[in-house]
Amino acid sequence: MISLSHVSIRQGAFRLEDISLEMGEGEYGVLMGKTGSGKTTILEAICGLRPVASGSIRLLGRDVTSLRPAARGIGYVPQDGSLFSQLSVRQHLAFALVVRRWPRPEVERRVAELAEMLGIEYLLDRKPKGLSGGEIQRVALGRALAMRPGVLLLDEPLSALDEDTRGEMHELLLAVRRQTRVTALHVTHNRSDAERLADRLFELRDGVLREVT
C-alpha cells in the first residue's frame, strides 16, 4: 500500500501543502494533473528524492518518510527512462541485484525472467544508444522491477510514445501487474493511460489532491 498523510513539500517558491493519499495493496493508481502542477514532485517525494517538510509517507505499512531512496523498496520509472549510457540492457536489468550482491547465477536467472516478461531478450547485449522509445521504457521498467519491489512508481513513462507503442505498453503494464501484484502509482496527463490502467484515479489541481470517482 501507499499512504501519504498531510505531506507538505517545499522546493524554492513551489509549495504543495497537506497532500494525503491512500492506496491498497496491489492497486494501480493513476495521478493526473496539468504540467507543473506538482505530480512529479509528489512521486519524487515518495521515492525519497525530494525531502518532505511535514507529514508522513508509508509504503507497505512501513514509515519511510526519513529513509533514503535505497531503503524504501520501490521501483522507479522516470519520464525519459534515464537509462545508464555506459551499461548494456543486461547490466540495467542486473543493476539493483548486483548492487545488493546477489549471487551471479541468481542474477542471470532473474535477468532472463525479466527479459522474457518484457519481451526484450533480443536487446540484452545492446547499449541504450539507438533504442526506440518503447524499448527504452521496457528496459527502464525491467530495471525497476528487478528487485521485486512492493511499490512501483511511474513518472509519465509513456509520454514520448506514439499511439501504437502506447497501446502495446498498456498491455505490457497490465500483464506486469497481473504477474507481480505490485502496488503502482502512475503519473500521467494522458486520459487514455487512466482509462486503460487505473483502479483508482487521482487528480492534482491547484495544489489539491483528490480522488476522481
Binding site: 525519497g48 521501483g75 534515464s82 545508464f84 548492487v99 528487478a146 528487485m147
Partner: peptide
C-alpha cells in the same frame, strides 16, 4: 550529465557515493 540517472541508481539500492 543529468542527475536523474544517479537518482534512479539511488532508488535501485545505491548510496550517493555508489
Amino acid at each position: 550529465i543529468s542527475p536523474r540517472s544517479e537518482e534512479v541508481a539511488m532508488t535501485l539500492g545505491c548510496s550517493r557515493a555508489q
